[in-house]
Write a protein that binds this DNA or RNA. Structure first.
Length: 887
RNA sequence: GGGCGGUUAGCUCAGUUGGUCAGAGCGUCUCGUUUACACCGAGAAGGUCACUGGUUCGAGCCCAGUACCGCCCACCA
C-alpha cells in the first residue's frame, strides 16, 4: 500500500496525487529529526504516529501538506555510541585521529540512517521523502554558518573565558541542560589550614582555620579562604594569610557575603577555577585562578606528586597525607547534589575555558513575548509555566564542543589573537581586523553543540538563509510536535533562534506529547532491558495497531504506560472493522451490480435505522473534528472506537440485517439500506485513516466509490460534518434500551438465550410508529416471536410468570414464559425490586431538587425543564414498577 | 529550596466551558442462539471520583489546605 501511495505521488505538498485545493493554506509539521545513533524506539513511533495523523488529516482537508523527514547528526550522542563501538574494535578517537574518525562516523551513520528511515516508512509516515534532510548536510552547514555570523554581528554570540561544564568522559564541555543534578551522599571533610605568622610569614603550628569541603583534591587550586564579613568567630583572622598545603601557596583570608555562616565551619576554601561560587568570589576579589585538572580530570600543573593522578585517586592520597599531618579535623556524611553528564554519567567538573557563548537573555525575551502574546501556543497549556520559568532564569548558552562530529565553529584566529567570524563556505580571506591572509588564520577546532543546528531546523530545512520559494510558502510552520522532555533543548532553542534570525515565530503551535513508559510505569531504557522495538511490535500486531494503541492511550503532555493489552485492543479493533467490511461487502443486494456506481440513496427510501446510522456517523465526524482541533488525539480514537464498534457494528449492522433480509420490501429500500451501510463505513474509514492508514486504505479499495472519489483514500476528502438527527437518535435509543431490557430480563430469569418467547410491548405514544416499523428488528435482536406492539400498557398480556420490563420513558413490556417455565417471573422478581429501589432513589433526588426554590429560581430554564421531565418519567416508572410487583 | 502534574471500578486510564458524568478497555462471573467477526456476541457484578474545608440552587469538574506518588528546575562549600 505504501508503494501505491508513493507511486501516486501523494507525499509532496504539490504531488500529482495529493490534490491540494487551490488557495488552501499550507500545513507544515515540524517533527524532531531522530538521532542517527541507532534505531527508533516506541517514543519515536508515537511521535511519528501523532505527526502523521495530523498530516494525513490536513492532506484530506485539501491543504498542501509538508511533512519533512530528517535526521539529526547528534554529535555527542553519536560520538558516545561510536566510541563504544571503536573500543570493541580496539580503536579509539585518539588512535584514529580526526580525519579517519570522521570517515568512520560517516560509515556508521550511513548504516543507521537506513534502519531509521525503514522504520519510519514501515510505520506509514507519509512524509515527503524526496525532501529528506540531515542536520549535517550542506544546506544545514550554510544555515549554521550564517546563523552564527548573524548572531556574532549582532553581539549575541561572544567568546570568553568562563567556567564551563567539563565532562572528563566525553572530553568536552556540555551545556547546563546536559548536566544532570544527582543527589548523592558524600562526605564533608573539615580541614585545617595553618595561618601564617604575621612577622615570619611561616605557618603557625597552633593557629589554624578550618574549612569544610567535599572535594579535598581542589585544595591544590585554592587561592583564598573566605568567611562571612560579620562572622565574629573569624573577624580577627580577616586579612591574615594561610598556607595551602602541598602547593605551599600562601593565600589571604577574605570576607565575602557568599559564605553561609551556618554551614560547615563557616569558613570556605576558594577554588576559582573549579567551582562556580568560588569563581564568582575569585572575580570579585581579583584572585588567581589556577587550573589543576586536565581534560581527563587528572591533577595537572600543580608541581606536586599528585600530578597525573585521577581526581579521585588524588582525593584519597591528599586526605591520607593531610591526616598524616594531623590536619583533618573531621568528616561527616553529607547529602549533596552532584552534576553528572547526561551522556556518560561522569561527574562534571567546572573548568575555566575560552569558548563561545550565545547571549540568551534577549532571545529568551522574544520567545516569551511570543507565547505570552499568543503568537505561539503551547499544548497542553500548563507547560507554559515551565516554559516561563526556564526562559526567565536562563543563562548564556555555551555552544563550543571539543568534539569532532558536528559543525565546525566558523571562527578564525590570527596570530595576534583577532577573531574573524565568517559565513563563507571556504572561510575568510583575511583577518577582519589586521588583514593578515587566510594562510595565517587558524580555525577554531571546536564544533557546535548539536542543538545549535537542530535549533535552525524549521527554516534551515526550507533553504534558509536563501529566500527560497519553500521559505516563503511554508514558513512559519504550523505545528511543532515533540515530547515534553526536549522542550528546553530543542523547542526553546528553535523559538529563540527562529525569532531572532527570521523575525518571526517558527510555528504557531507547540504540541507536546508525553513519554512512553513500560507497563510498570518505568522509563524505557536499554540498561533496564524494557525497551520495545517498534518493528517487532509491528511484525506481531501491525503498524495500524501500534499507531492506534499509541494514540489511544495518550493524553497531551502526560506519560502513558504501554503494554500488550493496549496493542491487543487496537488489533482487535482493526479486526472488527475488517470483519464488518466483509459483512457489508457480502451483503450487497443482488439487485445492485458489483461495479455499480455509488448513488446517494433517496431520502424516501431511508427507514429510521438508515437515518440513525447516518446520524451516528455524523456524530462521530463531529467528535473527531473536535478532538483534532484540540489536539486531543486520544479523544479521536475513543470516538472512533465507540462509533465503529459500539454503534455501527453492534447496532447499525445488526438492525440493518433485518431489512436487508426482508424480501417483502421493495428493492429500492433494501438497496438504500445497503448504500447507507456503505456510506457510513466510508465515513468511518475516512475518519480513521489518519490513525490506521493501512487497513483503511485496503478497505477503501474494496468499497464502491463516488464518481468524484480519487483512487486512494489517503487523498480522499475529509467527511463534511453535519448535525446529528436528535429525533432519530432518541427514537432508536429507546428501541435499543428496550432490546437491552428484554435481554436483561431474559438473562436474569434464566430463560435460555436461544428460546423464542412471545413479547408484548407498549411503547410511549410518540414512539409507537417507530416501534411498529422496527418490530422485525426487535424480534430478531431480542429473540421475541411473536412480538406484539400494543397501544397501552393495559392491553399487555400478562399470564402467570410473565417477565416485566418497565423503562423510564414510559415503555412497558411483557415477556411471556414458555408454558414449561411459569416460574421464570418469580426468578425475575429480584431484578424488578432492584430497579424499583434505584428508580425511587433517583426520583427522590429529582423531587428534592425541584422542591428547592433556589434551584428553580436560579438554574437555567432548560435545566429545570429537564429535571421536570425526568421527575415525570421516574414517577411513571416507579408507579408502574409498583403495580407490576403488586400483581 | 522552587515549580508542575497525578490521586476516579481489581488493573490501565478517559471525563476542556460546574447541571442524567459516575464512564471505557482489560480482568472477573453467567450464558451463547441468528453464517461479518471466539481477535466474537449477550447479560451482570464492581467506585462515599485521596482527604478536609469553602464557593454555588448544584462540584471528579472551581477555590484553599492536607497526605501520598511522579516529574522538572536549582552553583550553597
Amino acid at each position: 500500500i505504501a508503494e501505491r501511495w508513493a507511486a501516486a505521488d501523494v507525499f509532496a505538498p504539490d504531488g500529482a496525487g495529493a490534490r491540494p485545493e487551490a488557495g488552501a493554506e499550507p500545513f507544515t509539521i515540524i517533527q524532531p529529526p531522530p538521532n542517527v545513533t541507532g534505531s527508533l524506539h516506541l517514543g519515536h513511533a508515537q511521535r511519528a504516529a501523532v505527526e502523521d495523523l495530523m498530516i494525513r488529516h490536513a492532506r484530506m482537508t485539501g491543504r498542501p501538506t509538508l511533512f519533512l523527514p530528517g535526521l539529526d547528526h547528534a554529535s555527542i550522542a553519536a560520538q558516545v555510541v561510536l566510541d563504544r563501538i571503536l573500543a570493541g574494535e580496539g580503536e579509539s578517537r585518539a588512535s584514529l585521529g580526526r580525519e579517519r574518525y570522521l570517515e568512520r562516523m560517516a560509515r556508521f551513520v550511513e548504516a543507521t540512517r537506513d534502519v531509521i528511515l525503514g522504520q519510519e516508512r514501515h510505520l506509514g509516515a507519509s512524509a515527503d521523502w524526496s525532501r529528506l534532510r540531515f542536520t549535517m548536510d550542506d544546506v544545514s552547514a550554510k544555515a549554521v554558518r550564517v546563523a552564527f555570523k548573524t548572531l556574532y554581528d549582532r553581539g549575541l554570540a561572544y567568546r570568553t573565558e568562563a567556567l564551563v561544564n567539563w565532562c572528563p568522559g566525553c572530553r568536552t564541555s556540555v551545556s547546563d541542560l546536559e548536566v544532570i543534578s544527582t543527589p548523592e551522599t558524600g562526605t564533608l571533610w573539615s580541614i585545617r589550614y595553618h595561618v601564617l605568622d604575621e612577622t615570619s610569614g611561616e605557618p603557625l603550628a597552633d593557629q589554624t582555620i578550618t574549612v569544610a569541603t567535599t572535594r579535598p583534591e581542589t585544595i591544590l587550586g585554592d587561592t583564598a579562604v573566605a568567611v562571612h564579613p560579620e562572622d565574629e568567630r573569624y573577624r580577627a583572622l580577616l586579612g591574615r594569610r594561610v598556607r595551602i598545603p602541598f602547593v605551599e601557596r600562601d593565600v589571604p583570608i577574605i570576607a565575602d557575603e557568599v559564605v553561609d555562616r551556618a554551614f560547615g565551619t563557616g569558613a570556605v576554601k576558594i577554588t576559582p577555577a573549579h567551582d562556580h561560587d568560588d569563581h564568582e568570589t575569585g572575580l570579585r576579589h581579583g584572585l588567581a585562578m589556577p587550573t589543576i585538572l586536565d581534560d581527563a580530570a587528572a591533577i595537572a600543573n600543580t608541581g606536586t606528586p599528585y600530578d597525573a593522578m585521577d581526581r579521585y585517586v588524588a582525593r584519597r592520597a591528599i586526605l591520607a597525607d593531610l591526616a598524616a599531618r594531623g590536619d583533618v579535623a573531621g568528616e561527616t556524611e553529607h547529602e549533596m547534589v552532584l552534576g553528572r553528564c547526561q551522556r556518560s554519567d561522569d561527574v562534571v567538573e567546572p573548568r575555566l575555558k575560552t569558548q563561545w557563548f550565545i547571549r540568551t537573555e534577549p532571545l529568551a525575551a522574544k520567545a516569551l513575548a511570543a507565547t505570552r502574546e499568543g503568537r505561539t501556543r503551547i499544548v497542553p497549556e500548563h507547560f507554559e509555566k515551565t516554559w516561563e520559568h526556564w526562559l526567565t532564569t536562563i543563562r548564556d548558552w555555551n555552544v563550543s564542543r571539543q568534539l569532532w562530529w558536528g559543525h565546525r565553529i566558523p571562527a578564525w584566529y590570527c596570530p595576534d589573537g583577532h577573531v574573524t567570524v565568517s559565513d563563507a563556505a571556504g572561510g575568510p580571506d583575511a583577518c577582519a581586523e589586521c588583514g593578515r591572509g587566510a594562510a595565517e588564520l587558524r580555525q577554531d577546532p571546536d564544533i557546535f553543540d548539536t542543538w545549535f543546528s537542530s535549533g535552525l531546523w524549521p527554516f534551515s530545512t526550507l533553504g534558509w538563509p536563501d529566500e527560497t520559494a519553500d521559505v516563503r510558502r511554508f514558513y512559519p510552520t504550523s505545528v511543532m510536535e515533540t515530547g515534553y522532555d526536549i522542550i528546553f533543548f530543542w523547542v526553546a532553542r528553535m523559538m529563540m533562534l527562529g525569532i531572532e534570525l527570521t523575525g518571526i515565530e517558527p510555528f504557531h503551535t507547540v504540541s507536546l506529547s508525553g513519554l512512553i513508559r513500560d507497563p510498570l510505569g518505568q522509563k524505557m531504557s536499554k540498561t533496564k532491558g524494557n525497551v520495545v522495538d517498534p518493528l517487532a511490535v509491528m511484525a506481531e500486531s501491525g503498524a495500524d495497531a501500534l499507531r492506534f494503541a499509541l494514540i489511544h492511550g495518550a493524553t497531551p503532555g502526560h506519560d502513558q504506560r504501554f503494554g500488550p493489552q493496549k496493542l491487543e485492543l487496537a488489533r482487535n479493533f482493526a479486526n472488527k472493522l475488517w470483519n464488518a467490511t466483509r459483512f457489508v461487502l457480502g451483503a450487497r443486494p443482488g439487485s445492485i451490480a458489483a461495479a455499480a456506481p455509488r448513488p446517494e440513496p433517496a431520502d424516501v427510501d431511508l427507514g429510521p435505522v438508515e437515518r440513525w446510522i447516518r446520524s451516528r456517523a455524523a456524530a462521530a465526524t463531529a467528535a473527531v473534528d473536535r478532538g483534532l482541533a484540540d489536539y486531543q488525539f486520544g479523544e479521536v480514537t475513543r470516538a472512533l472506537y465507540e462509533g465503529i464498534w459500539s454503534e455501527f457494528c453492534d447496532w447499525g449492522i445488526e438492525l440493518a440485517k433485518v431489512r436487508l433480509a426482508d424480501e417483502s420490501l421493495p428493492a429500492a429500500s433494501r438497496e438504500a439500506t445497503w448504500w447507507t451501510l456503505v456510506d457510513a463505513l466510508d465515513t468511518y474509514v475516512r475518519l480513521l485513516h489518519p490513525v490506521m492508514p493501512f487497513v483503511t486504505e485496503a478497505i477503501w479499495e474494496a468499497l464502491p466509490h463516488r464518481v468524484d472519489d480519487p483512487e486512494l483514500l489517503i487523498v480522499a476528502r475529509w467527511p463534511r460534518s453535519h448535525a446529528p438527527d436528535a429525533a432519530i437518535d432518541r427514537g432508536i435509543g429507546e428501541v435499543i434500551d428496550t432490546i437491552v431490557a428484554l435481554r436483561n430480563a431474559r438473562a436474569t430469569a434464566d430463560v435460555p438465550a436461544g428460546a423464542w418467547l412471545e413479547v408484548h410491548l407498549a411503547p410511549p405514544a410518540a414512539s409507537r410508529d417507530l416501534f411498529g416499523q422496527l418490530a422485525p428488528a426487535i424480534e430478531r435482536l431480542a429473540r421475541a416471536r411473536p412480538l406484539r406492539v400494543t397501544d397501552s400498557a393495559a392491553e399487555l398480556a400478562r399470564p402467570a410468570g410473565a417477565l416485566d420490563v418497565v423503562l423510564p420513558g414510559g415503555l412497558e413490556g411483557s415477556i411471556l414464559p414458555a408454558a414449561a417455565d411459569v416460574d421464570a417471573g418469580a426468578r425475575d422478581r429480584a431484578r424488578l425490586e432492584k430497579e424499583l429501589v434505584e428508580a425511587e432513589g433517583h426520583l427522590d433526588a429529582a423531587r428534592a431538587r425541584l422542591a428547592n426554590a433556589s434551584f428553580t429560581d436560579k438554574a437555567p430554564p432548560a435545566v429545570v425543564a429537564g429535571a421536570r421531565d425526568r421527575e415525570r418519567e421516574l414517577t411513571a416508572q416507579v408507579e408502574r414498577l409498583r403495580e407490576r410487583l403488586a400483581s
